[in-house]
Amino acid sequence: MNTPQQPLLNIQGLTKFFGGLCAVKDFSMTLNAGDLAGLIGPNGAGKTTAFNLITGIYHPTQGEIDFNGESMVGLEPFEITRKGIGRTFQNIRLFPNLTVLDNVCVSYHPHAGYNLVDSILRNHRYGAREKELVERAQDFLAIFKLEGIQNEQAKNLPYGEQRRVEIARALACNPRLLLLDEPAAGMNPREIVDLMEMIHFIRDRFGLTILLIEHQMRFVMGICEKLTVMDFGEVIARGTPKEIQDDPRVVEAYLGKGAAHVS
């Protein structure tokens, strides 16, 4: 179904007004399967709003979002997730009082393989599927080197591990497109290098398409293959990291008018 010509994600003319404020204006973007793309821009440029529109947390005022040839506009967030778009959040949103294992198991719920009646009767199907589900989650945690802390409450983890749990939880939804909202925020340089390796690894391992928002330029330039730059809700530039670095409009957006001459 997803022929090479057909993009995985195709956004056209996406616009979102909050009252009179235009947060995202005429936003367009195309992602092909396997892309590792970045969305950058100064604070308040509308990047996270764009993410929230794609995942259905907000409904767009105008525009089209096609994922895998299907329109995502008007669907509920949980339906969009079940169609194959996973995400993480800018300020980590784990389930703080659940264990790491349960955090991941929650994502498996839509394909748990047993229903409410099975769980109340505790029949064989419950036993078998629940065991299988937990094992799958444990395998998954092992990939992220989190298996040793599976019974810890998520709120007790250090920041870097919480980030990893969040990514693991998003991947457990079995997405084809993964949206990462500032995955490197608050990480030290060593952790960032690890994170870059991990993102490459999960893309190859799970055949993902990844779109990420990030402020750390070293990280973005090092990992993304193509970039889209937003400012005041509009796309001001797109291209490879090299092209973006040299684009006067981007430099202007980040550093102000005239900065281009100084550098």
Binding site: R82, L98, H109, A112, L116, E130, A170
Partner: peptide
């Protein structure tokens, strides 16, 4: 039995964080 099942986990996930639960494919 309800609490310690997949459905029970989603019930607790909704308590913990509704937006995250939505984004993990749970019908709130």
């Amino acid at each position: 039995n309800l609490i310690h099942s997949s459905t029970g986990r989603t019930i607790m996930a909704v308590r913990e964080d509704e937006i995250a639960a939505k984004a993990m494919g749970i019908d709130i």
